[in-house]
Amino acid sequence: MSKGFVLPFIGTLLGMLVSCGKAEEKPIEGFSQEIIAIRVSDTIPLTNPDAKVWQEAPAVLIELKPQNMIPPIIQDAVIKQLTVRAIYNDDYFGMLLEWEDPTKDDIINVDKFTDQVAIQFPITPENPGSFMMGNKGAPVHIIHWKAIWQRDIEQGYLDIQDLYPNMWVDLYYFKKQPIYSEFTEEGVKMPRVEEFSPEQNDYNPAIKMRNPVSLIERQIPVEEAFAEGFGTFTTQLHQDAFAWGKYEDGRWRVIFVRPMVSPDSRDAPLPAETMVAFAVWDGSANQVGGRKQYTPWIPLKLQ
């Protein structure tokens, strides 16, 4: 049995024991057991991970564990650690997350998955509940960034002709205004789904129904959600957070920013001492949904 398998297993076991109050989890060398957020006077940078202000906060290394408890699972963590920096000022709280990932996965197809990262805060810090998306009576606030969403904003909504540049379809739809592919001097022009009228989107039910994963006019690459247990992930009506990622040299750096105080009752408060948890997905490893690397609750102190 490899060491890589044993360690997460023991970690899980210890985690369960801690929750029963019978044993203390011993810190693994090199990994931090808490995150200190530093107060800064500058503004929090929204998109620049190289901004100097990030250097004011200590870089904290967090261990990621494979979600191997509740089906569907992953057996081993392909991303094993996450570097976290946290800063805040009067108005906003920011986090810079960094991890190594040799492939940038920012498209989706039947067999292609996107890179993602999410942070989670307890809505009731005095009773944070389960670190696995909370539980009934102890809900959580999740801020979720996906590489595909950022690509949608930077390059336009990922459409079928982006995945298959040489494709051709005679016409879409059989209503009053059918949509045809056209021959132009530059070549074949395929219609883009962004150009469709609401009536033409009758044939794209999830777009028509405004499913949060099918937003063709997406403005921000992040989604704020509420959850109180597995399978309860629910997009919030008010989206108050922002995130932006940068992929360079086999490394993702993603900035998360949220207001210090939010009028939204489904946003977690940020007292001087609370908790935070993370989840990271690697698209190349077909990770999606519950198939992810996670951390348990980690104390977060605002200094």
């Binding site: 794209n204 499913n211 994963v213």
Partner: peptide, 8 residues
Amino acid sequence: FFNMVTRT
């Protein structure tokens, strides 16, 4: 089936 445009 997976619809790669609606992503559902």
